[in-house]
Design a protein around this nucleic acid. Sequence first.
DNA 1: ATAAATGCAAAACTTTTGCACCCGA
DNA 2: TCGGGTGCAAAAGTTTTGCATTTAT
Lengths: 145, 145
Amino acid sequence: MLNQLAKRRQSRQRDTVLKVLRGTKSHPTADWIYEQVKREIPNVSLGTVYRNLRLLKEAGEILELDFGAAQSRFDGNPKPHYHLVCVSCGSVLDVDMPVKRSLDEEASESSGLKVLGHRLEFYGVCSRCAEPTPPSQNSSKMGSI
Amino acid sequence: MLNQLAKRRQSRQRDTVLKVLRGTKSHPTADWIYEQVKREIPNVSLGTVYRNLRLLKEAGEILELDFGAAQSRFDGNPKPHYHLVCVSCGSVLDVDMPVKRSLDEEASESSGLKVLGHRLEFYGVCSRCAEPTPPSQNSSKMGSI
DNA sequence: ATAAATGCAAAACTTTTGCACCCGA
DNA sequence: TCGGGTGCAAAAGTTTTGCATTTAT
């Protein structure tokens, strides 16, 4: 539990995981990331992807997002920001609105507890699903949307 | 995908699951609920508990909460409200502050999309963990906290 | 009588981990 | 060289599901 910042040496696998995540505006699952990394490193293992996602998260380089779905999604942008989840197709979008620290203060007053931060997710309908003829509910495996 | 409201007949198992959930202010895991239901119906199966949790959720009687943890937690109060997750011990508390629909409007303006609602969770330190000598990080299995 | 609900166990799925080998500093 | 990183496969843990049986209506 002590040194969370053990000395890490560089690895092609971890660099590639981070590059993939930084290179997409989507919020992909571990499995989708794995598929992308495999394009560059064909014999990479899924375990390695999971290990590096955990390390990158601990290092504060990426965020892990947990919505209702079975799998986690990851976000290459570690700055606090809000998300919108499409209730129709499950895609996840960034919402470009300022983070409201005042919510923390209000929650602190309501509960009498120390509040460190919050997570806010919106539920709505993405532009693709709002079209006249909406696409099929689940496009393929939806891993990257 | 059609009739989400198929005709359900009553069952002792489902009634008991709901009673257990309504009877606690905690936000328990499926496993903890299973243990409680077993006190009344010793040979109930875990699969039945999961099935009924899903049915009750679909019927809008309960909420499923998904925080980062491996297991889902359930909430017998289906009215929208906010939660606070203790970063020290993982317990989940209700936060008694009004739901802000104005956030949805703001998100809708920022994104240009139709926003139906939101989920807001606070992260902080519960009163037990804020004490001078905090309790051990993980008390037993933490299922009900 | 009819079909929903159950118990049981196997299966499905995501994520973690043990271990021998590899490789970056 | 030294210990962190990897690949592989097995394991762990939660949730779902197939099926024969039970049970509510």
